[in-house]
Amino acid sequence: MTRQPLRLAILEGERILAAAGVASPRTDAELIAAHVLGVERTRLPLVPLVDPPVVDAIGQLVTQRAKRIPLQHLLGWAQLGPVTLAVGPGVFVPRPETELLLDWGLRAIKTLSEPTVIDLCTGSGALALAVANARPDAVVYGVDNDAPALSWARRNADLRAQAGDTPITLYSGDVADPTLLTELDGRVDLVLCNPPYVPDHTVVPPEVADHDPPQAVFSGHDGLATIRHVVTLAARLLRPEGWMGIEHDDSQGKSVPALLSLRRVLSDVEDHADLAGRPRFVTARRRPL
């Protein structure tokens, strides 16, 4: 059995994925190769030659990816900061840009001891578990109203607890429910949320349209239906001088901050751009008493 250059298999994968319209063909081809080989992507240059079955396995996954099945579904995992999360059909796949909201949130509670943090619309549990990983002293809650998403979140919470992270508490609840988490009213240091925010009928990539749960993506004609409820809920939960951060669509850089500015109990409303300079998330603070 003649061994073959791994480089050629990756180049062929890149070619196929580029022709299929995949946004990052080289990266995806390399991640698929690393997955098949069971090595870190950065170590691929140390594997110059591979056996034909490895080339075949890479080719099979590339073929699936070319059908626009999310890479994370094929690999079985996604990353948010240092935390690896199990993902698949039925749950929203965390995006790298959400790390900006995570980083901001961790800075907001940097000086606090044993902060209470709530991740609304938690999905896979990504933000909640990333906070628990970074702040073992934090009391962290994750909330979602979707049963399949919560099952993924529970699986990830169990995996992270086995890895030694601080356990989190998961709630099944709707952010529109005025009785949700009333026992925490005025006691929360930080509320984070990556809600559904895409306006209905927006054309989205096949990975989103065919594989992300619609209820985790779309939210009314203007994309703000869920965010309106999140703002009301977060304002109720926050302690005086507590912080909130909400991710939003890049078309909502004015409309979402305007929603927060209408709430008299909130101050320091600020919108933040992603690494490409696009509006990405908004933050605000509960006014002191």
Rank of each mutant, 00 (worst) to 15 (best):
I58N: 02
A134M: 05
V139Q: 12
Q215H: 15
A23L: 10
E207V: 11
G245V: 00
H272F: 04
R135C: 10
I109L: 03
R239I: 02
Y141V: 13
S24C: 13
L266Y: 03
L233A: 07
I227V: 09
G164S: 07
R264G: 11
I10C: 04
L184M: 10
V208K: 01
A153Q: 03
A273E: 11
E30P: 09
L238R: 03
V140F: 05
T42C: 11
T84M: 10
D51N: 12
N145Q: 12
L192M: 09
R239A: 07
L17M: 12
V55M: 06
I168H: 11
N145I: 14
D185F: 12
L106V: 01
G105W: 01
A149W: 06
A23P: 03
R236F: 06
A34C: 06
G173S: 06
A157I: 02
H272E: 00
V36Y: 00
G253M: 04
R65M: 12
R187V: 10
T63V: 15
L266G: 04
E40N: 09
V198M: 08
L259D: 00
S219N: 07
A130S: 13
R160I: 04
P178F: 09
L259S: 01
L100S: 06
D119M: 10
L44F: 06
S151F: 05
Q60S: 15
V203C: 06
A273I: 04
L224V: 00
L6C: 08
P148Y: 07
T27V: 12
P45G: 07
A57P: 05
E207L: 10
D174F: 11
D268N: 13
A225K: 09
L237F: 05
G88T: 13
D185S: 13
